[in-house]
Design a protein around this nucleic acid. Structure first.
Length: 688
DNA sequence: GCGGATCAC
DNA sequence: AATGGTGATCCGC
């Protein structure tokens, strides 16, 4: 929910310009070699370059290199301990693969840069300068923006509860640390570090369990105070907030620095928590400033253009929120280490890093950013999900049990959020740490565990077919394309034994609102609009069609018909095939727990919305079929026109020919499967 | 739209 | 022996 880089509010304020400040985390590069062939082994060349080793070490060091409290720590020693502890593990192998991919991209970046420098860059230069000029004209130095960050928040709350923790090295978390005391940081211990590594660095490290109710309670106390300084302040997670103190300073005739001092003292005395604060003219600058005198300190970047530019000039790009380990590495490769380095490279930024990242970098160089602070209105959530890690899990029954548990957990979260979703995403992490996701859109918004399970099971089956012997360490489910649930009805029943009836669950109501940002990025809005206007249906701000119920049903009926005609033959063949397949399939462990009335509508297929016989097994098989049909359509689309779907009716890849060993590109996550391989994967998924 | 990857907290 | 969970965004297909 923390969208500190959001340009929405920025755009609303900066009248003439809506600078895109979203960073791009992946870059457009020439295709690496690994994309041309299939790499089965580790994508590490015979002569593993020092570049790669550095990248790997950098990765293993974790994301919090820039965190405070590490100043006096011997990083070389820490790196060595982490490397020793990790070597040979599956986690290490996965990190090595990602690091190798990064090294490949970095090399490609450098090649590309050299090529570009031999070309005429005047157009790019002019564009960059024009962008800089327009940004400059939108600069707003009039606000007093403050970023507050509680110091080692979870650890601080733990120490309040158990004063024996004061002054000793301890950490909060389980197998992976959430945070740790400043005493622990002196040993090189950091958040996101596995506990067993932390213990090697600091054998006397004490571990404390997480206690979210305490964190939430303490955050509430703190927010009560912040509210008196800026009633419109913006929480960013439990331990961070943005405030606009312009009015407070004006009304109380107090300097920003004194006001923040007072605020920090008040929070320390009333809540027992120390806070670090940054004061500046924009949210990103305030965030950066807050890290200068952490812990328990504050820093102000003066609100003059000269001071801002001077401050940014020497600042490592890594300090800018949105520039992570990977982008830092890529920028380093083209000679950009501090923000001042951005300017001389400005003509190369778009071709090397793409439009979004280029604009983001130029904006950062100037020290320009969001100046409007407002709390989230709660309607901007785009997804709800749950996931969990466990000991390696394999086997059809165990995976299904886990899937059902996850679906149950997601239902709870959906209830809590008061939303339904029109897309369900299944996520698994293989025992090798490779992450895979599969998603499917549903015709009708869903939110109950039973619907989620029914929809996600075929995705799991698909993965089981793609990856024989599927063995996973994480499983997650997420709903996206959210629609507001009818809170007035459902909320009253939360906690009661009775579940909402199925009509409520499946009915798409007129007052259902599609959740969308108030001010969508222009590119996305137009893209959606282009698609969304096809049938003359009204379209909302984000390009979503607004469907009155009657029209919705009518259009859905029409769509069903067309789809049905289009796929009838295939469907019939598939059904036969499917029935054969299903002979051995285990029945579901449990039946619908919501025990709805047995009206026909309650058994509408959530994919195609066609009424289905009120029989669980039959419905499940029908949903399988629906999903398979989606797959077929994709395959049909991906095959050239002259090669008819008819060809697909005869599987060209009988299951026996499916390669046992997956040929999955490794190294570099951004190296994606070729089209050909993807369609083959789909064929296998369905036909095997 | 889908799937992989990155980023922040 | 052992490396988190939630949510968002961007990119190339």
């Amino acid at each position: 929910m923390d969208r500190r880089l959001s340009d929405d509010e920025n755009g609303a304020r900066d009248v003439s310009q809506s600078p895109t400040t979203e960073p791009k985390q992946d870059i457009d590069t020439v295709k690496p070699e690994a994309d041309e062939g299939i790499v089965t082994g580790p994508a590490v060349p015979a002569q593993a370059s020092t570049e790669q080793l550095n990248a790997l070490t950098h990765r293993l060091l974790g994301p919090s290199l820039t965190k405070s409290g590490q100043e006096g720590v011997s990083q070389d020693n820490v790196s060595q301990v982490i490397l020793d502890a990790s070597k040979g593990s599956k986690f290490y192998e996965r990190e090595a693969a990602l690091a190798a991919g990064l090294a490949t991209r970095v090399a490609a970046l450098q090649t590309r840069k050299a090529k570009l420098e031999a070309q005429d860059l005047r157009v790019h230069l002019r564009n960059a300068d024009a962008f800089l000029a327009s940004l400059e004209s939108s600069r707003d130095l009039s606000r007093i923006i403050v970023h507050l960050d509680c110091d080692a928040f979870y650890a601080a709350v733990a120490a309040l509860k158990d004063p024996t923790l004061k002054g000793i090295p301890f950490a909060v978390g389980g197998s992976v640390l959430s945070t740790c005391s400043y005493e622990a940081r002196k040993f090189g211990v950091r958040s996101a570090m596995p506990a067993f590594v932390a213990r090697k660095l600091c054998p006397e490290l004490k571990l404390v369990d997480q206690d979210f109710p305490s964190y939430i309670a303490k955050a509430g106390e703190i927010r009560a105070i912040l509210q008196t300084y800026d009633p419109n302040f913006q929480p960013a997670g439990l331990d961070e907030s943005y405030l606009d103190l312009t009015a407070y300073c004006q009304d109380n005739d107090i300097s920003a620095s004194d006001a923040v001092s007072k605020l920090r003292t008040e929070v320390r005395e009333k809540c027992g928590i120390t806070i670090s604060a940054g004061i500046a003219a924009t949210a990103p600058l305030a965030k950066i400033a807050g890290n200068v005198n952490k812990p328990d300190g504050q820093f102000e970047i003066p609100s003059t253009r000269e001071a801002v530019m001077a401050y940014m000039a020497d600042l490592s790009v890594r300090k800018v929120a949105g520039i992570g380990r990977v982008l830092q590495c890529e920028l380093d490769a083209v000679g950009i280490r501090v923000c001042a380095d951005i300017y001389p490279q400005r003509a190369l930024l778009v071709p090397l890093f793409g439009d979004k990242t280029a604009k983001f970098l130029l904006t950062s160089y100037l020290g320009i950013g969001r100046t409007r602070i407002a709390p989230s209105d709660g309607r901007d959530r785009k997804s709800v999900g749950t996931e969990g890690t466990f000991a390696d899990l394999a086997g059809a029954q165990a995976l299904r049990t886990k899937l059902r548990q996850t679906a149950e957990a997601l239902e709870e979260d959906m209830k809590q959020a008061g939303v339904k979703g029109r897309t369900v995403v299944l996520k698994v992490k293989l025992h090798t740490f490779e992450v895979l996701t599969r998603q499917v859109g549903t015709h009708i918004p869903v939110w109950t565990k039973d619907d989620i399970y029914r929809i996600s099971l075929p995705m799991l089956e698909r993965l089981e077919k793609e990856i024989p012997g599927l063995k996973i360490r994480l499983l997650g489910l997420r709903c996206t394309h959210l629609v507001e649930a009818k809170l007035s009805v459902d909320k009253n029943f939360f906690g009661a034994a009775k579940a909402p009836n199925t009509e409520e669950r499946f009915c798409v109501c007129q007052d259902d609102q599609i959740l969308a940002p108030a001010v969508p990025p222009p590119e996305r809005a137009s893209a959606h609009r282009a698609e969304g206007s096809r049938s003359g249906v009204p379209v909302d701000e984000d390009g979503w069609e607004i469907w009155p119920e009657a029209e919705f049903e009518a259009a859905a009926e029409q769509e069903r018909k067309e789809e049905f005609e289009e796929l009838l033959k295939l469907s019939q063949e598939l059904e036969e095939r499917h029935d054969q397949d299903n002979g051995a399939k285990a029945p579901l462990e449990s039946s619908r727990s919501t025990s709805p009335a047995d009206d026909v509508e309650s058994w509408a297929c959530p994919i195609c919305n066609r009424p289905q016989p009120a029989d669980e097994r039959a419905l499940n098989e029908h949903i399988d079929l629906c999903l398979s049909r989606e797959t077929i359509r994709e395959v049909v689309r991906s095959v050239p026109e002259n090669k008819a779907p008819a060809k697909l009716e005869k599987p060209t890849l009988p299951s026996k020919q499916v390669p046992r060993k997956r040929a999955r590109p490794r190294g570099g996550g951004s190296i994606s499967k070729s089209n050909h391989e993807q369609s083959n994967a789909k064929r296998r998924a369905f036909f095997s």
